[in-house]
Design a protein around this nucleic acid. Structure first.
Length: 422
DNA sequence: TCTGGGGTCCTAGGACCC
DNA sequence: TCTGGGGTCCTAGGACCC
C-alpha cells in the first residue's frame, strides 16, 4: 500500500480574540492587549512577551505589564470571523473538521488536482485569511492529525510548517513532550521525573515503562505518534456527546432556594440547547464544589431521554441533594454544574406517547416530559423572535457585573448536531 | 487574591446477564 | 450449587483541551 502522503492540515488562528481586537481597532496593533476583565481570556503576542497568558487574573497581568491594554471583547465578531475563516477553508475542501472557534483540521487529499500540493494549499489558506479577513493564522501540514497539530504549534505565530514523511522522526525528536496531544501538566511532571523531556527521549523509552507511567491508552497514543499511525481521520461535523453548564456561586449556603434556582437556570440553558439541536439525553450528571475547592459528582441515568427544562432541573436538583446529604458537614458551596450525556435524537415518537400509557413519576422524561416539552417549545419560539431575555428564568441572579459575559459562554459551546450551526 | 466555562476521553470498580 | 469467563451498562473521578 502506498504511503498516504502529507495531506492533513491543521489551521489555527493566532491569539484569536486579541488579533480580532487589533483588527477592529488599529490603535491596538503592536501593543500588548488582553481580552477580558477580572480574568484574561486571551493575550496578544506583545502581551505574552511579558509573561501574560490566558487564565491569568487581570490584576496580575497588569502588574506584569502596566502598559497592558485591556478590552472587554467583541464576542459577536469572534464568532462571525471564525465562521468566515471556516468558509475560506471549505473553499479548498469539504473535508473540514472544526475543533473550536479558532481551529480546524482539513484533509486536502482530494483537492490536489484543483489547488496543487498540500504545502501550496496551506500557503494559499494563510494568504487568503490574511488578505480577506486581516487575521494571522498558522498552519501545520503532515501525514496525521496529531503531527499536523504539533506542526501548527511549532509554526506559531503566523507561520507554516510542513513535515514531509521522511522527516518525521527528525522533526519530532527535539520537541518538548508538552506538545504531544494529551500530555498536560500532570503527565509532563511524571515524565520529567523519569528524565524524559523531549519527544525523542519518549520514543526511545521502553514501551512497558510508558505503559506503567502513563496508563495503557496514553502510552498507546504516544506509540502511535512515534510510529506515525493515527487512526483518527478528519471527520466533518462530529456531533457532541454531552451538553452542560455550570455556575460559580461565590461562597453560598446550600439552601433549597439556591439549589432550585441555580438548577433551574442551568437546566434552562442546557435543555434549550438540546431542543435546539433536536436531541435529548438519558444521563444527567451534576457537580458540586465545596468551599475547600474539592468537588463531588453524581450521575443518574433514566430510561427515557430528557430534554424538558423542568424535568432536567428536577433530576439535577435531586442529584445535588444526594451529594449534599452525603456531606452533611459541608454546607458552603462555590459551584453547581449539570451536564447531559448519552445523547440520542429527539424523535417525534417520544412526544406522541399517550399521556396515560406510563405513570409520570416512573418516567421523568416521557409523558410528563411531553407536556413540558410543549411549553418549552413555546418559550424557545419566543426567544427565537425576541431574544433570550424575553422570557424565562431570572438571569440577573447570576450575571455579576464582572463575571463572564453570556456571549462568552456561548462561544465555548460546541455544536450539537446538524441543526445547530457552529 | 487563586480565576471562568464548556467539553472529551480514560480508568476502575460494581451490578447484572448469559 | 459452585466456579469461571465474557459482555454491557453505569458511576465517580481525573487529566486534558480550547
Amino acid at each position: 500500500m502506498a504511503a498516504p502522503g502529507a495531506t492533513i492540515l491543521h489551521a489555527d488562528l493566532d491569539a484569536f480574540y486579541a488579533s480580532v481586537e487589533q483588527l477592529l481597532d488599529p490603535r491596538l496593533r503592536g501593543r500588548p492587549v488582553a481580552v477580558g476583565g477580572s480574568v484574561v481570556l486571551a493575550a496578544s503576542y506583545e502581551a505574552r512577551a511579558f509573561g501574560i497568558v490566558a487564565g491569568m487574573s487581570g490584576w496580575r497581568a497588569r502588574r506584569l505589564c502596566p502598559a497592558l491594554v485591556t478590552v472587554g471583547g467583541h464576542f459577536g465578531e469572534y464568532r462571525r470571523l471564525g465562521d468566515r475563516v471556516v468558509e475560506v477553508l471549505q473553499g479548498f475542501t469539504p473535508v473540514v473538521e472544526r475543533v473550536s472557534i479558532d481551529e480546524a483540521f482539513l484533509d486536502v487529499a482530494g483537492a490536489r488536482r484543483l489547488f496543487g500540493p498540500p504545502p501550496a494549499i496551506a500557503a494559499a489558506i494563510r494568504d487568503r485569511v490574511r488578505r480577506e479577513l486581516g487575521l494571522p493564522i498558522s498552519v501545520g501540514v503532515a501525514r496525521t492529525k496529531h503531527l499536523a497539530k504539533i506542526a501548527s504549534q511549532v509554526a506559531k505565530p503566523d507561520g507554516l510548517v510542513v513535515v514531509a514523511p521522511e522527516e518525521e522522526a527528525r522533526f519530532l525528536e527535539p520537541l518538548p513532550v508538552r506538545l504531544v496531544w494529551g500530555v498536560g501538566p500532570a503527565t509532563q511532571t511524571r515524565l520529567a521525573a523519569a528524565g524524559i523531556d523531549t519527544i525523542g527521549q519518549l520514543a526511545d523509552s521502553p514501551g512497558d515503562f510508558l505503559e506503567h507511567a502513563l496508563g495503557r491508552a496514553a502510552s498507546g497514543k504516544l506509540r502511535s505518534l512515534a510510529a506515525n499511525v493515527d487512526p483518527r481521520g478528519v471527520v466533518p461535523g462530529r456531533p457532541a456527546r454531552s451538553v452542560g453548564a455550570q455556575a460559580a456561586l461565590g461562597r453560598r449556603v446550600a439552601t433549597p432556594e439556591l439549589v432550585g434556582t441555580t438548577m433551574g437556570y442551568l437546566a434552562d440553558r442546557v435543555a434549550g440547547r438540546l431542543r435546539g439541536a433536536g436531541r435529548a439525553g438519558r444521563t444527567v450528571t451534576v457537580r458540586v464544589r465545596f468551599a475547600d475547592q474539592r468537588s463531588r459528582t453524581r450521575a443518574v441515568t433514566v430510561p427515557r431521554a430528557v430534554s424538558a427544562t423542568r424535568t432536567l432541573a428536577e433530576l439535577g436538583a435531586g442529584a445535588v441533594w444526594h451529594v449534599l446529604d452525603e456531606h452533611p458537614a459541608e454546607r458552603l458551596i462555590t459551584l453547581l454544574a449539570v451536564s447531559v450525556g448519552n445523547l440520542v435524537p429527539e424523535t417525534a415518537l417520544q412526544l406522541a406517547l399517550p399521556v396515560d400509557l406510563v405513570p409520570p413519576v416512573a418516567d421523568p422524561g416521557g409523558c410528563l416530559g411531553a407536556r413540558r416539552w410543549g411549553s418549552d417549545r413555546a418559550v424557545d419560539a419566543v426567544r427565537a423572535r425576541f431574544g433570550r431575555d424575553a422570557v424565562g428564568y431570572a438571569r440577573v441572579v447570576f450575571s455579576e457585573p464582572d463575571g463572564a459575559p453570556d456571549a462568552f459562554r456561548q462561544l465555548a459551546e460546541r455544536p450539537l448536531g446538524a441543526r445547530e450551526r457552529f
